[in-house]
Amino acid sequence: MQAAVFTNLALGLVLAPLLSGIINRTKAAVAGRKGQPLLQAYFDIYKNLRKGAVYSTTASWLFRAGPVVGLAAAVAALCIVPASGSAAALAFAGDLVLFAYVLGLARFFTVLAALDTGSSFEGMGASREVFFAALAEPALLAGLATVARKTGTLSLTEMISTASANSPELVLVLAALGIVFLCENCRIPFDDPTTHLELTMIHEVMVLDHSGPDFAFIQYGAALKAWVLGSLIVGILLPAFSSSRPLMLACFVGAMFLLAVTVGLIESGMARLRLLRVPQLLAAASALSVFAFMLVVR
């Protein structure tokens, strides 16, 4: 039990940055390019950790606190989310709410750090971030509530150890959570992590002024956030079907990589949505969750 918890934590802490590498390689492969190294995210983080820092004269202590709180909250979220079919470090009834709100705390501080620079670009990114998050939050919690209804439990750990994706309702929930995953991790069709034009970005533009270790914290925190949301989806899709730990671990990691490949394929296949369309997609995610719930209680 203890060992499983530590393996899961270690797995997340070590492998999280790999996901973006896989996504980028998939995109490169589809586009017929060679692409960046799989471990590029690790290199970036390492490079930034070794640098000094430049701070804006406008920025206050909050600007420095943003990345720190963001990273800490991502690690805390990692402790609440179960992975590879085994329990999370801490499981209790209602932990799904805490999970969503811990991520909310990270976002709140990232947004404040962006506003602290006084830059209009970062303000714009912050504004879009809170807007999308406010709409993604109901979809996430409604989706999780549906899974809770299906499995009759309020703790993520028990949900994931009993959920099975072979029911049509959970497929709807997975679709909703998939949309939330793309939105929260700033992937296409919500945000394009590869553009470097300030006006079009959301997450990337909020962190324009961060540098050095602060920026490394942000990159690592973002990777962890993708990992925890991913392990939620994978957990619902792939419940504990076997008691063999190595098999479960291998399947879990494989599924996470597959999720990254899927994201890469989605990103290759479609363009970023116009900002006006984004609320509609998020509302659709909520609608999917509601519909799934109706099917479950019927």
Binding site: G52, A53, R64, P67, V68, A72, T117, F217
Partner: peptide, 21 residues
């Protein structure tokens, strides 16, 4: 922990001020 880590990493390095980008 993260704040401490940040402080350790930045100690002895060049920390500058500039205008917001």
């Amino acid at each position: 922990l993260a704040a401490w880590l940040r402080r350790v990493l930045l100690s002895g390095r060049r920390v500058e001020s500039a205008v917001t980008w």
